[in-house]
Simulated scan of single mutants.
Amino acid sequence: MKNLLKFLFVFLALSLAITSCDDDDDDNRNPEITNLELGSGHDGDSRNNATAYPGRDIHVAADVFAKNKIEKVVITIHEEEHHHAGTKAEGTEEWETTVEYKDYEGQLNAKFHKHIDIPKNAEPGDYHFHFKVVDKQGLTTEVNRELKVLAKKK
């Protein structure tokens, strides 16, 4: 009987230790970003075609999960550095933006959905799109995509 009690005690102690370690690991889990959509969504275009047009907006949607609750979502869009090598279309300007969203602060799960305006004079070309989630412990996850800004649609 003593051996059975010792075995049960050791088994319970090990179970508690393993469970405690698992919880600690979960607290250090980075936020998750899934189902990211990036696209113009205009005039029959796909909402997930990674294209945009000057003077219009771009649709951005994603599912976000943060075990430690969301602090903020940051979107940055900037031109590829080598994309035009000094030749710029007349009347256009280099464009970049960084937008920080606190709308989802404190949530574990969020269905992110925003539209970002593209200036009318944004230079067409290749851009980088960065979607970053920061949780309340400062852990981050970032998804990067290529984005094409095309000449105005007629």
Rank of each mutant, 00 (worst) to 15 (best):
N3P: 00
T97W: 02
N144D: 14
Y104N: 02
E32N: 04
L14G: 03
K114T: 13
G125A: 08
K132Y: 00
E90M: 10
E146L: 07
K154N: 12
E93W: 01
E94F: 07
D22C: 05
R29H: 06
W95C: 02
N28H: 14
F131W: 08
G39M: 10
S15K: 00
K102D: 12
H130N: 14
T141R: 07
S20Q: 10
R56G: 01
T87H: 15
V143G: 00
R29E: 15
A62G: 04
Y127M: 08
D24V: 15
T141M: 04
E80R: 15
A13Y: 06
T51G: 01
D103G: 03
D117M: 12
N121P: 05
W95M: 05
K102H: 11
G106N: 09
H59S: 04
V133Y: 02
H84Y: 12
G86H: 11
E71F: 09
G44I: 10
Y101L: 06
V143L: 10
N144K: 14
E123G: 01
N49S: 12
T98F: 04
P124E: 07
T98V: 12
A66L: 09
K69Q: 13
E80P: 00
A122F: 11
R145Q: 14
D26E: 14
I33H: 06
L12Q: 04
I118H: 06
L5C: 02
A17D: 00
I118E: 04
K136D: 09
F129G: 02
G138F: 07
D43A: 12
T34D: 10
V133N: 01
D24P: 00
K148T: 07
E32C: 01
D23T: 12
D103C: 04
T140F: 01
D103I: 06
F9S: 08
E90F: 13
G39R: 09
H42Q: 11
V64P: 02
T98L: 03
H82Y: 14
D24C: 06
F11V: 10
F129C: 05
V74P: 00
T141H: 07
I77H: 08
I77R: 05
H78K: 15
P31W: 03
D126W: 06
N35S: 15
I33R: 07
I58F: 03
